[in-house]
Design a protein around this nucleic acid. Structure first.
Lengths: 247, 247
DNA sequence: GGATTTTCTGACCCGCGGTTCAGAAACGAG
DNA sequence: CTCGTTTCTGAACCGCGGGTCAGAAAATCC
């Protein structure tokens, strides 16, 4: 055999690309800038990746896999917790009960893991959020977000069912609120150099939400959500327009 | 003189462009698709606008002007309200006092106007949010969002100062929460055909926030925010990279 | 030192779409 | 109808950058 490939090249290209994507978005990021950043030439790029989007796809797949993993683990931990505890007893409904505190701490731990993930992938998340327009990744982040909103919503409905949450606030409202907050936080992460202290943040959010959503003595039923079953806009596609639509 | 221009052309192009921008983002929107949609030819576009981005700039300026107007009006209404009421008396601090209810209703009215604005401009907002990458408008929406977060934060600090809000939750947290929620809502608006009932939504959010942020008997001081004074990432710009960074 | 094989280079190709512009078309005035 | 003027058309121009490929360079084996 002859001339082994530079062992650092692949990884160097990957991380240079991440930097370049953050700076310019997927479309505007130029292959030459990526390769020059690691002292390689344009052509070398194609020895390691099939295309610019192919490289980004690698990154996105990893993020999606980790997110999926997190979702299933969260689901399992919640199931385990409930199974271990048995049925919900009246004393568990009291605001400060051991049960409520344990459940809340479970949520905090899982949310913390989510924030850690967002921190590790903050660059890619940032690109997905605002630098993927016109590519195959357009909308990936919003799909993830919609799913998370639904997850929170379902958790809320479950809590309402066992009277651990007031039922005059739509679960969807809490979902939009929680996920919307995380969205802004995720966005801010991309401009930080050092990892912030998530605890401060989580406790504040936790407090606010816990006390805002706590069961009330007198509550009316939830009115139906104004955003139910919204049809998402069609994915970008070439449009053959009809002529003369305004005469 | 001779051959007057089609009086509908300008407006027709404008709205066709809005549709096209929503469908494909600013970059991918093709001039030909815009002109064909109103039965005009490519060249005609340049009789009405100096460039594709020029057209979008017009739209963005209008949105920004309306948002600015809303901010100043909100500021003035708040000032007027406080001036008219005089100093805050002890009885005003009680959760259900006339003062608190009036203040809350003021907030609701202003928020409602914001939602109406987001509804009217939902297409442009949507494009700014996820279809402006790589253009001069990249980041416009995030700057607006950051400003709104600061506004909410300041309102919170003001409320804390007169003991109308608990002080163990950072104002910034409430800002991210409120604005993040509106962000997701704004995004959803773009996929709706009919205006939803904002009231349902506002009351749920209002309740949750009001009761979550109400003053507590025993509170510790706010810990400093982990996101303070974050340097935003540099605007997109051509990058001349140094070579050989990974020898 | 070849001989051979794989890596790496960078000039080139090519499609795309914003923008331009020479000329055609439409309209009013006389 | 003809002329002058302005609108409108669409082929042509052009820069850009992703992707290709013939050949140069580098490494290994003999």
């Amino acid at each position: 055999m002859a001339r082994p490939a530079d062992p650092h090249a692949h990884e160097a290209l990957r991380s240079a690309a991440r930097r370049e994507f953050v700076k310019s978005g997927i479309q505007k990021a130029r292959i030459e800038d990526i390769t020059h950043a690691c002292g390689l030439s344009k052509g070398a790029f194609y020895l390691h990746f099939d295309s610019k989007e192919g490289l980004f796809r690698e990154l996105v797949s990893e993020v999606e896999a980790e997110l999926e993993e997190l979702r299933t683990v969260r689901e399992r931990h919640t199931q385990d917790f409930l199974a271990r505890h048995g049925s919900v007893k009246p004393k568990d409904l009291k605001p400060g009960s051991a049960f409520v505190r344990a459940l809340r701490s479970l949520h905090t731990r899982e949310d913390q893991k989510l924030l850690e993930l967002l921190w590790r992938w903050r660059d890619v998340v940032d690109v997905l959020l605002s630098g993927s327009q016109g590519t195959a990744f357009d909308g990936v982040m919003w799909r993830i977000i919609d799913r998370e909103v639904v997850r929170v919503q379902e958790e809320c409905e479950a809590l309402k069912a066992v009277k651990l949450m007031r039922d005059d606030i739509p679960g969807e409202a809490v979902g939009l609120l929680l996920v919307g907050t995380y969205l802004l936080v995720a966005r801010r992460l991309s401009s930080l150099e050092e990892k912030p202290d998530f605890d401060v943040w989580l406790t504040a959010l936790q407090k606010l939400l816990a006390e805002g959503t706590a069961p009330r003595p007198h509550t009316r039923a939830t009115r139906s959500s104004p955003f139910a079953a919204s049809p998402r806009r069609a994915p970008p596609r070439a449009a053959r327009g009809s002529r003369r639509s305004h005469p």
